[in-house]
């Protein structure tokens, strides 16, 4: 489930969706566009810029129990890469299912690691990030 949030009103969200986004995204925006006009929600998540009066680019991955598993916050000029978010969600879902862990640079389909005494000092044998 995706929820987007900005300080714009729901009425502006409607106009933006209808007049611009629906022309960029086939079928329109499939997720709820939330309004945080007081900045209260952004403040609680540490992404509200008091001086500018906006929520900056914060992205949070929340698991089915309501626990924050990942966050990423960027200043306004640079946009995000959805693929990286999806990769992280896939990795966290894999951990939740198997208990295995993912080394740096892991992508779905690549080998995972099972932590334990036997693996200590042996990661170099099973994980070679240079080879893909």
């Amino acid at each position: 489930m995706v929820l987007s949030i900005s300080v714009d009103s729901r009425f502006v969200h409607k106009m933006w969706e209808e007049h611009e986004l629906a022309k960029m995204v086939e079928g329109g925006i499939p997720f709820p566009m939330l309004s945080d006009q007081s900045g209260e929600i952004g403040r609680a998540y540490g992404v509200y810029d008091e001086a500018a009066g906006v929520d900056i680019r914060g992205r949070f991955i929340i698991d089915p129990e309501g626990i924050v598993q990942a966050m990423e916050v960027l200043t306004p000029p640079v946009g995000r890469l959805l693929g990286e978010t999806i990769r992280q969600v896939q990795a966290f879902q894999h951990v939740a299912k198997t208990g295995e862990v993912m080394p740096a640079g892991w992508r779905p389909g690549q080998p995972t690691l099972t932590p334990g005494p036997e693996l200590t000092g042996k990661v170099w044998k099973v994980w070679k990030p240079g080879e893909e």
Partner: peptide, 24 residues
């Protein structure tokens, strides 16, 4: 009205952004 806790049991991504009709 949307409540975060309505989505318990699902993976949720929350995405804050500065404003509608901006450029990035």
């Amino acid at each position: 009205n949307i409540k975060l806790s309505d989505y318990k049991g699902q993976w949720v991504m929350i995405c804050f952004y500065p404003g509608d009709f901006t450029f990035v």
